[in-house]
Lab assay of single mutants.
Amino acid sequence: TFVALYDYESRTETDLSFKKGERLQIVNNTEGDWWLAHSLTTGQTGYIPSNYVAP
Rank of each mutant, 00 (worst) to 15 (best):
T1R: 06
T1Y: 15
T1Q: 10
T1P: 07
F2A: 05
F2C: 06
F2T: 04
F2R: 03
F2M: 09
V3W: 06
V3I: 14
A4N: 01
L5M: 09
L5S: 03
L5Y: 03
Y6F: 13
Y6S: 07
D7V: 02
D7I: 02
D7Y: 03
Y8D: 00
Y8M: 03
Y8S: 02
Y8E: 00
E9T: 13
E9W: 09
E9S: 11
S10L: 03
T12G: 14
T12F: 14
E13D: 14
E13T: 12
E13F: 08
E13A: 13
E13M: 09
T14A: 12
T14N: 14
D15S: 09
D15P: 02
F18I: 12
F18K: 00
F18S: 01
F18G: 00
F18P: 00
F18D: 00
K19T: 08
K19P: 01
K19I: 08
K20L: 06
K20P: 02
K20M: 07
K20S: 08
G21Q: 02
G21V: 00
E22R: 00
Q25K: 10
Q25Y: 15
Q25W: 15
I26T: 03
V27I: 15
N28S: 14
N28F: 09
N28E: 11
N28T: 10
N29S: 13
N29F: 15
N29V: 14
T30N: 11
T30M: 13
T30Q: 12
T30S: 13
E31N: 15
E31S: 14
E31V: 12
E31R: 14
E31D: 15
G32W: 09
G32I: 11
G32Y: 08
D33Y: 15
D33C: 09
D33M: 12
W34K: 13
W35I: 09
W35F: 06
L36E: 05
L36V: 07
L36S: 03
L36N: 02
A37H: 00
A37F: 02
A37T: 02
A37Y: 01
H38P: 00
L40M: 10
L40C: 08
T42N: 05
T42P: 01
G43K: 07
G43H: 11
Q44L: 14
T45R: 09
T45C: 09
G46M: 01
G46P: 00
G46T: 01
Y47D: 02
Y47S: 04
Y47V: 05
Y47K: 06
I48H: 00
I48Y: 01
I48A: 03
I48V: 11
P49N: 08
P49H: 08
S50N: 07
S50A: 12
N51P: 05
N51Y: 11
N51K: 13
N51M: 10
Y52M: 13
Y52W: 07
V53K: 02
V53Y: 04
A54S: 12
A54G: 10
A54I: 14
P55Q: 12
P55T: 09
